[in-house]
């Protein structure tokens, strides 16, 4: 009697296991998928971001905008320890890569991806960095230009003052007083 009872319990348990397994498999098809990886043969665009002090913009928020959708980012993330960020362009056109830091600094690189970029012959994309800071001799030249502009403004104001009749009258009054 006990043996018959034990067999029927075993059969019921086996049937329940088969039914539950089938139900689980039927209701969650995603669990049947795995995730894998492979090395991509696509060409990437690596960019370095830095401050005017020469320091790199490490671990800063970065967003990539495609030529077709300038509002919603195509890709986002952070620069690495060395201020670098890479993306793989999916189409020709001007791609924008914007990096922001919490202190109010922002730099936006404008990368022009031509037809050549997707062919094997070309190694580097024609890239122009819209917010790039001048360095070296160009920086020195611009510094001299800036100071020159300031003193040209002063020279212009002084010249205007000496030519104005009001100022010549006041200088005459001063001379008479002396």
């Amino acid at each position: 009697m006990r043996a018959v009872c034990g067999r029927s319990v075993f059969r019921i348990a086996s049937a329940a296991f088969v039914i539950i397994s089938a139900a689980c498999a039927g209701h969650s098809p995603a669990s049947a998928h795995g995730a894998g990886y492979r090395l991509s043969d696509k060409k990437a665009v690596p960019i370095e971001f830095y401050y005017s002090t020469g320091e790199v913009m490490a671990y800063q928020e970065t967003r990539v905008f495609s030529p077709t959708d300038p509002k919603n980012s195509f890709q986002s993330g952070r620069t690495d320890e060395f201020g670098r960020y890479s993306f793989i362009p999916a189409a020709e056109g001007t791609w924008r890569v914007a990096v922001n830091d919490p202190e109010g600094h922002r730099v936006e690189a404008s990368i022009e991806i031509g037809e050549d970029f997707f062919t094997d012959e070309s190694d580097v994309a024609a890239a122009t960095a819209a917010g790039s800071i001048p360095q070296g001799a160009e920086l020195a030249w611009r510094a001299v230009l800036g100071v020159s502009v300031i003193f040209n403004i002063v020279a212009f104001l002084s010249l205007r003052r000496t030519k104005s009749p009001q100022s010549s009258q006041t200088s005459k009054i001063k001379e008479e007083a002396i």
Partner: peptide
């Protein structure tokens, strides 16, 4: 008007001071 050259000098100093980097530990300003 007599102070304009002084203003230009100070403006130039401010303009150029931003190019002088100071190292502060791991970062610079």
């Amino acid at each position: 008007h007599d102070k304009i050259v002084q203003v230009a000098m100070a403006s130039s100093v401010f303009f150029l001071a931003s190019l002088i980097n100071i190292r502060l530990g791991p970062s610079s300003t």
